[in-house]
């Protein structure tokens, strides 16, 4: 009988440990890595978002240097989008409210309709959304080709495109991408799905914790 009790105790302890382990599990690194031989050793090169240069709602230049010491969430939208964008923005507001005062955190929302969504338009749009400044959340516009390029397989790996038959004239992804300080993509979430956005909100502190040593 004594032995059974001891088995029970081990069982309980094991379950407790097993259940707590996700805390220190690292987020995955998305994209196809390349392997390179350097001085006889195999080096893994992860997919990273290339350098970029856009302008935000306050006419500030936003480049890779802006997020050099930050993790960030990226997405794509356009102001006159009749389909998924309002829900995406409602969900991104949840992320913003939670982390707007976190110093090493940013949000980059890229318009895919820069001809319509000018700096002035994005300022009005972001103010009306409830984002008073560009401290954390940058609404980006710029060269159209560059925006599509950074959305493509070279960058955030999301489907984007102009299409006359699509509602509002654009095909676009509702994805939110979580990017680390090395500009590796560490998570992809459906920005129209509140449950996935909750997962993102839970993953952000985990990613920040990787840099606290």
């Amino acid at each position: 009988m004594k032995m059974w009790k001891r088995v029970c105790l081990w069982l309980v302890a094991w379950v407790a440990i097993a259940c707590s382990s996700p805390k220190n599990s690292r987020l995955p690194i998305l994209g196809i890595p390349e392997y390179k031989e350097v001085n006889g050793k195999i080096d893994t090169l992860y997919h990273t978002v290339p350098n970029f240069q856009f302008v935000d709602q306050d006419s500030a230049l936003v480049t890779e240097a802006t997020v050099a010491d930050k993790i960030y969430v990226a997405d794509f939208f356009f102001g006159t989008c009749p389909t998924i964008c309002p829900v995406m923005k409602q969900q991104m507001l949840r992320v913003y409210e939670q982390f707007k005062d976190t110093p090493n955190f940013a949000i980059l929302s890229h318009t895919i309709d820069p001809e319509h969504d000018t700096v002035a338009y994005l300022k009005d749009y972001s103010m009306r959304l409830g984002v008073p400044d560009n401290k954390t959340w940058h609404f980006l516009t710029g060269d159209k080709d560059k925006i599509y390029q950074i959305g493509s397989g070279e960058g955030y790996m999301v489907p984007l495109g102009e299409n006359e038959d699509a509602p509002g004239g654009f095909i676009h992804s509702g994805a939110f991408l979580l990017v680390d300080k090395e500009r590796r993509i560490r998570g992809k979430y459906d920005g129209t799905n509140p449950k996935e956005v909750t997962a993102l909100i839970n993953d952000i502190p985990k990613l920040l914790a990787e840099y606290e040593q």
């Binding site: 009749p82 923005k89 009306r128 959304l129 409830g130």
Partner: peptide, 15 residues
């Protein structure tokens, strides 16, 4: 609902 939201609350001062 994609604009006015399932809860009917709209979006900021946009919708």
């Amino acid at each position: 609902a994609n604009c006015h939201m399932e809860n009917g609350e709209g979006l900021g001062q946009l919708i």
